[in-house]
Design a protein around this nucleic acid. Structure first.
Lengths: 160, 160
DNA sequence: CGTCATTAGATGTTGCTACATATATTGTAG
DNA sequence: CTACAATATATGTAGCAACATCTAATGACG
């Protein structure tokens, strides 16, 4: 269903406006789908993202600062997310010996196990579908990169 | 800047995965930009959306149900959003005469005035930019429509 | 008419984002 | 070494999303 029907809006000031609303709307649909899947594993999307980043470090500890830089929501609060993951026993948090301000966060065996239970569900979603090919996905991603760039540049000129 | 740099991730399982993350990430950038602009008018994005829907009704009152259907976040709580807009004097809420369960929400003159202060800022963002044309925006919107459709259909087959 | 499922809306809770601020530690300029 | 800016993290708050639950009113069916 096209965006026009989904939110029952037929008039748009421009395709830019329409693409903007559509991006936000689609994001919510994707997030809802991800959240529903993750809920079975008692994880939220940001919690899952933290775990993914930690696993990607392959044993190397991450500081909260590093987690923040790699999260989708940079202004989210990695500190509190680590708190909840700690309560669940999925991560470990120890003071950093070199810098006593920082902490070193690592994923635990339990955390890795939770992730490994989720992995197959994600790859299952990636099967090829003729109505949305890998080439389509690549085009979409590139357009989104350029869209962000334009929106950002216009904001800068507006605030001048 | 491409998504790979923005979140410092270089490996992707597929373009589908990449497009999914990029859609969510771009949505956050767009929302942050919109929220920053709306903040000057003491409005949040969902509050603004409600006002836009009400103005679009051109005098006809809207029920909370109708607002919910047309909002981007369908599971958000239009009832509470109307509460805050009511406190600001931007909307009016009266019991519906035909159906005493329902309420009729309308935008006030003050609400229309706030919107009219925002309108020019939005159209300013729509100026043409050769690095992201209207044709690009149209392509993007169409790809997003198809992306949603595929994700949804796969979710349905998964839950069978 | 009376029963009961349905509908519209309100309300309570949890977790998150955005933002401001606080605390502790480190780096740096004089 | 001292004063102070910068850094890393933690914490407090407002508003929202998601979800469950509750109340009041309506509609449908025997």
């Amino acid at each position: 269903m096209a965006i026009d029907e989904e939110i029952q809006q037929t008039k748009w000031e421009s395709f830019r406006q329409k693409a903007m609303v559509n991006t936000m709307f689609t994001s919510r649909v994707l997030e809802a789908a991800s959240a529903a899947m993750l809920k079975e594993h008692h994880l939220t999307l940001p919690q899952y993202n933290i775990l993914r980043i930690l696993r990607g470090r392959k044993g190397d500890p991450s500081t909260v600062k590093l987690l923040t830089e790699r999260m989708l929501d940079k202004s989210s609060n990695a500190s509190r997310l680590v708190d909840t993951l700690l309560e669940k026993g999925l991560v470990q948090r120890v003071p950093c010996p070199n810098d006593r301000r920082a902490v070193e966060v690592t994923i635990t065996a339990a955390g890795l196990e939770v992730l490994s239970g989720i992995d197959p569900k994600l790859s299952a979603r990636d099967r090829t579908d003729p109505s949305f090919t890998e080439a389509d996905a690549e085009t979409l991603s590139d357009l989104l990169d350029r869209f962000r760039a334009v929106v950002r540049s216009e904001i800068e000129t507006l605030t001048l």
